[in-house]
Design a protein around this nucleic acid. Sequence first.
DNA 1: GCAAGGTC
Length: 849
Amino acid sequence: MKIALMVAEKPSLAQNLANILSNGKCNTNKGSNSACAVHEWNGTFKGEPVRFKMTSVCGHVMSLDFSGKYNNWDKVDPIELFSCPTEKKEAMPRLRIPAFLAQEARGCDYLILWLDCDKEGENICFEVMACVQQSMKGDILSPLVTFRARFSAITEKDIKAAMMNLIRPNENESRSVDARQELDLRIGCAFTRFQTKYFQGRYGDLDASLISYGPCQTPTLGFCVQRHDEIQTFKPETYWVLRVTASTSEGRELPLEWKRVRSFEKDIANMFLAGIKEIKEATVVSIQAKEKVKPRPTALNTVELMRVASAGLGMGPHHAMQIAERLYTQGYISYPRTETTSYSENFDLIGTLRQQQNSAKWGSDVRALISHGINKPKKGHDAGDHPPITPMKPASESELDGDMWRIYDYITRHFIATLSRDCRYLSTTITFQIGSETFYYTGNTLVDAGYTEIMHWQAFGKDEFVPPLHVDDILRAHDHRLVECQTSPPDYLTESEVITLMEKHGIGTDASIPVHINNICQRNYVNVGSGRRLVPTSLGVVLVHGYQKIDPELVLPTMRTAVEEQLNLIAIGQADFHAVLAHTAEIFRRKFQYFVRSIEAMDQLFEVSFSSLKTSGKALSRCGKCRRYMRYIQAKPARLHCSHCDDTYSLPQNGNVRIYRELKCPLDDFELLSWSSGSKGKSYPLCPYCYNHPPFRDMKKGFGCNSCTHPTCPYGVNSTGVSGCVECDGVLVLDPSAPKWKLACNRCDVIINIFEDASRVAVCETACSACGAQLVSVEYRAERTRLPAALTEMTACLYCEPNFSALVEKHRAVSSRGGGVRGRGGRARGKQRSKQPKDKMAQLAAYFV
DNA sequence: GCAAGGTC
């Protein structure tokens, strides 16, 4: 029997599709990668009996990155990133999707692609095809082998129709995604690397280890800063309002509103006041009662859920989506990433509603709704991706904790509200004439609460008083006065408003909007203030103002739209992939070059807000080149800066750095530092210069003296190493912090405590003849000694000397013997040169040989 | 260490 392999975009969809297509009669096996299940059943395809196998990927199979050496920030000029080679890498290596697909495709005759029907899905089609190319029986490019299902809703009708009308995957749409990926990568990384390196080398208090640029994150930040600027430049204006109170014969007081609303000229306002001041009668000239409607919501999509979570529940969009994801995987709600706000025609509204009729929270509302008949939901937007977000099974507050319940509660109430009536109220406006001036009084009264009974936070307030008046009635007018007011500035944008702006400008997608907002928070460009308002930091402000000075397009939201329009030409087959890519990349390459040339304009802004490295931090240790003190900048990322040489040296990021006994590195004269991860952790000396510029080929960047293979230096591994590590390929090195002596691995976290309270511990030149470890000598003060026979000093092997075994942390010592003790490796002793070259560089060169 | 886009 022939075999047809079908692939969906995610495991849940594969399961739904398999259920529909097999009429609920499929067998499910766990996939070999434990993430993607395989559903199998027998059916017919092209008039023949066929074995169907339905499985899925998990989103994109591959992601784009630069090739090898171009990922090195130190060796690559960012301008090269516009033209350097790129390569596709497995997007989720842990899941081994390509291998899984290749295995499942073995011996298959047909490939049917059920990826989401958008451009990204089309691109994943081709990723899948590339994975199975070698395994399938036929030619993957043949229209007799590979098919594409086009569906707009996950309903039986739609899915079965799609199966009957298979088409071809759309290569143009896929190529447009390839182009997008490449442009985003090249542009984002080039700007990010340049900015980061430039500003990190100049300022000490940026409080950011990365200063990123991106076609989505930067315009998002732009929105927040634009509002900040509006607030800063706002000038309050004074205006005057004419106020009068009318009293009914029963003595009810009605505050009236002026038809002219307000006047910005005090003299004119005064003139109006003078004109009516003496008139003590307000005549009713008209009464209008109008029914107004607060419409029930449309069905819920992702963006609206994120807005409500932020504005109503105080939850950030990233967090809200994580919660929604959990509710989804546990079966409480439908798929939470959807743009659609319209229920499909065969959506089981009543069935979904019935599941909620026993709820302690809204059961009675639901039962009333069912017995009176539901209202037809409002027609929303059908994006053809997934149904709106709805509850899938009932839940009680006790089974879902905290935020999971709050999100479920909202989703369910929203669902019920979409089937409820609109909220209706009567708005009565009574118009009064006082002399030549017109005034209003408005009172609202509720007609039908409708959906606001279930979404009670939107409920209409108390009924307002509406006096029983008629035209020509005359009321007493009193309390004529002018009230002085001031216009007030707008507030910072709420997260919810930012989401709306992003959606409006097409920045990001429902899945990526929370990521972009999260990015600008974590990169320290904005802070989330009260009411989840996004308040830019000085770094955020300075960045955006800098772009605006150099090239405002870099931060404009229209930039993304313009690029997407170009990409769309590829998608609809009206432009050549290479032409669009080359053209757009060239535009941005020039923008980048201009940006680099003009960076001083942005730097002038940084200068005002941040302090230069010269004045940041405090003096710590001496530079080996000029012998002046360098400054230690503690703010992220921790580093040393020599203002005389204008050099910056990065340091280990977590832990404490202090001066190390004023000792110097024999290679470069830099004063040594001591790094420690805390009182109980490990510590080692490091030379700031060697840490950044490793002197030996076998020493990597970012390591301290405990990894330095200098043949004679007393701080290098050749002098301080004792034996091979018990758990990795590293070397156990003596950590010289008395009185807590220990051996610490120079690669992993293994620490072995030794000789507590000893006054001196040193590593000897001689190795143990039995195990190859270096001998260690220990000295105790007489009153503290732990050695037998009141000995105060001893030299022996840590692992072989029985008298040492009690003084070396047991389990480590035992395991080290059990695992076989290796010599400490590195360069053999005894090769030392008798005379050191005088010149520092000659010295270095000598060691390189 | 970098983008944005899928998804877990």
